[in-house]
Design a protein around this nucleic acid. Structure first.
Lengths: 242, 242
DNA sequence: CGCTATTGTAACATAATGATACAATAATAA
DNA sequence: TTATTATTGTATCATTATGTTACAATAGCG
């Protein structure tokens, strides 16, 4: 989880469920690179996944959406619950203690943020260009990092990202990926590049096109007369399911 | 979750993490029927999944194992975390209030068991014949029920079972299922019947055998000279992965 | 010693996927 | 205008996986 001083700073975390956090792995896509949104704590070397907590009367999924929306400015994004991280060894209050102290707070040992947390992992896929990374509060910054070039993260957050990527890859076959990662309309080549980036391997163009079209989730919009010296590709969009 | 009076009866649930429960969907297999283990609360009409809570210093997975082991008498069983149920609408304290009252307790409104719970779902597959269903405490009974013939369950427990079955079916392809569901050695026909029961559809024998053998997870042990008036089938066991 | 039920697997049919080839064409430059 | 170039859309074939039928092998039974 990440530290949100705005309203969670009070000693006993009134209004939130204790010992449970949501951690979001928000993937973005740019220049054929998968990016991930990370929060950095000011005045420390601590980097963490954007996280948050569940309000006492809030649906779990709504809480995940709220967290993702707060950090990206995007509503209506594809969110998937992928795993719960609940090892006791996750309990490492030291970083949070330091973060609070560095920022002028002196939490008691029983401060709710210094207790053990079970963390529910959600991943999201967003359009890199439409998202406006927003830090959770004055203490945070929030930025995109290449998946291949991340800073060291607190706790088990690296493992969480690995697990999220595994879940995302496993879902590429069944579920449609790209609703929020790609612009409204896109070429088959762009969709393929996205899949190639997520899977970290090259795909064969004819087979990919054949498969995508066989799923009946794409519809042709127009031709894209904009690019280079070659045949104009078709633009597609996801068919709206009604 | 289910109600365990033995040590969770105290008003504030000392030693347990609050607002988080584990619900287990324990599948057993018998007579080509999938069974599921259900707890019944004495003196009420309430049926529920075997559930439990996480001790303050206990790993989440260990807690799930403990719950499953306590209810089946089986250790070392295949357990898989499949989903977290966290809608606020799950909050229905009435059944638990009744259960406690019927059994001679008068919980206050702030009793920790009457609060909202986020429930982490695990499923397990056990050998029906080796399991000894054990109620959680004096107030409970614990029995196998056909998946097709279950009593009405409290809260969203029916949905939890549905979701568990979906996860189990989705995993049949990738993961090996049957370590704990089948005896030490078994015939290809028995394995096929198990798969057919889980998937609720017939499979073609040659294709099934070809596929299973291609996975290289089975080894032939011997022939089974015991059955009826026909060719003796081979016995297989899962290769120990080392 | 045949009969029966079931197994193990070969053999073929069909479908899915992998790989190659090539015509179509939008921009560019001669 | 026309040749050039890069890339797209798709046809075609190869390979692999899966679905289906067929049949020999054989343990128990009468």
């Amino acid at each position: 989880m990440s530290y949100k001083p705005a309203d969670e700073i009070n000693e006993n975390g009134t209004g939130f469920i204790k010992n449970v956090a949501i951690d979001t792995v928000i993937f973005g896509f740019h220049d054929n690179l998968l990016k991930v949104l990370l929060s950095a704590y000011k005045n420390t070397n601590y980097f963490a996944l954007p996280g948050g907590f569940i309000r006492e009367m809030e649906n779990l999924y709504d809480a995940a959406r709220r967290v993702a929306s707060e950090r990206t400015g995007l509503d209506d994004i594809y969110l998937e619950q992928f795993y719960v991280f609940g090892d006791y060894s996750r309990y490492e209050p030291e970083p949070f203690k330091v973060i609070m102290e560095v920022n002028g707070n002196k939490p008691s040992k029983s401060h709710w943020l210094l207790q053990r947390f079970i963390s529910i992992g959600y991943y999201a896929l967003v359009d890199f260009t439409k998202a406006t990374p927003t830090p959770a509060a004055i203490f945070d910054s929030c930025n995109w990092y290449d998946l291949k070039n991340m800073p060291e993260l607190i706790q088990d957050h690296s493992k969480i990202i690995t697990k999220a990527l595994e879940a995302l890859r496993a879902n590429l076959d069944h579920k449609v990926v790209g609703y929020n990662l790609l612009p409204e309309s896109f070429t088959m080549g762009e969709l393929q590049k996205l899949h190639e980036t997520i899977l970290a391997k090259k795909l064969l163009r004819p087979a990919f096109q054949r498969k995508m079209l066989s799923l009946c989730i794409l519809e042709r919009v127009a031709k894209k007369y904009s690019g280079g010296a070659h045949k104009a590709p078709y633009l597609y969009r996801f068919v709206s399911e009604v």
